[in-house]
């Protein structure tokens, strides 16, 4: 099994109701597997903020072991044992007028 320590930052904290947690996944699991696992756990609120149509949502950023993987293919990142994942969700962009 792979042990992943997850830290939630920003608007996702209220959705999951916690700041951090530890999740165990089968060895060789990817970031996509983890996010789908969390979506099943936390429901539509998580999906709306983090996953949209199988991709990272527009305001979500994910770091795996401190490296930003919010890029094409990022969800394929393999999670190594004792790894850390940081999920950051910001509000709608404060742009424009």
């Amino acid at each position: 099994m792979t042990e992943v320590r997850i830290r939630y930052l920003g608007l996702i904290q209220r959705t999951v109701g916690k700041r951090e947690e530890v999740v165990h996944l089968p060895k060789g699991s990817t970031l996509g597997d983890l996010l789908n696992h969390l979506a099943a756990e936390y429901g539509s609120g998580f999906e709306e903020k983090v996953l949209q149509s199988g991709e990272l949502g527009p305001h979500a950023t994910v770091l795996v072991d401190g490296i930003n993987v919010s890029r094409p293919g990022g969800l394929e990142t393999i999670l190594e044992g004792q790894g850390s994942v940081e999920i950051v969700v910001l509000g709608p962009p404060p742009m424009g007028g």
Partner: peptide, 19 residues
């Protein structure tokens, strides 16, 4: 500001005026 709003936990950052 955007990180402040996110850490606060509110999605309600707005420009109002010209928007």
């Amino acid at each position: 500001l955007r990180p402040w709003m996110a850490a606060l936990g509110s999605p309600n950052q707005t420009t109002i005026s010209a928007g």
